[in-house]
Amino acid sequence: MKKLIEIISLKKDYYVGEVTVHALRGVDMVVNEGEFVAIMGASGSGKSTMLNIIGCLDKPTEGEYILDGIGISSLTKNDLSNLRNRKLGFVFQTYNLLPRTTALDNVELPLLYNKTVKTKERVERAKAALESVGLADRMHHKPNQLSGGQQQRVAIARSLVNDPVVILADEATGNLDTRTSYEIMALFQELNSKGKTIVFVTHEPDIAKCATRNIIFKDGLILRESPVKDRSMATEILATIPIEAD
């Protein structure tokens, strides 16, 4: 199995004034191709810091992080930008779509920063990504014309459009109701079954059970790491949740 993410004795310190905060105190972690990993932990446990580093938004203080065979500690800011652009997809809790911009334009955005993608290819790939999240009929809608679940689907389409090696989701269901949360998880499971590697941060145990492996952080260290035994299938759960009458 190919190691996509390899983290070796990684430490991260923050300096808040005179005080040093040890956010991560030596983490070893591997994510293989095709895995669906849920990172859990209380707030302040270091899970968000971990996701920022995995997402190449931040660099470790000590230790090594190898993404798809590339050690990132020696890379410059611009190299990191390119890496994010080509190899990573982000899904945020608050969707972070551009307001007053159509779904299609939002999804095209990562490809705008990739010079090798021409206009025609960009539009085609964005349309394909929107179709794969089931929003083919909402392409020209703006975020304020879409529901929360639909907005998050647009965000997922945006994270898919550059064909990343890993999709990173930060509390992607945090703003959604239970039913919509499972709809999003069903989408993630579908993508995972097609071979996408997903790293997912959540604090909801039920949601975490949709993944294939759980990693639990505590005080900057990995507390427990275990494969999910009886994995929840989001589509099955959805069938048990009644659709609320409007």
Binding site: G55, N82, N85, F90, N96, L98, L109, Y113, N162
Partner: peptide, 16 residues
């Protein structure tokens, strides 16, 4: 600011 953050996260460089 958030738009700028997003653009950077998905690969926009400072120069962009």
């Amino acid at each position: 600011t958030r738009e700028i953050g997003l653009r950077m996260a998905i690969g926009g460089k400072g120069f962009d």
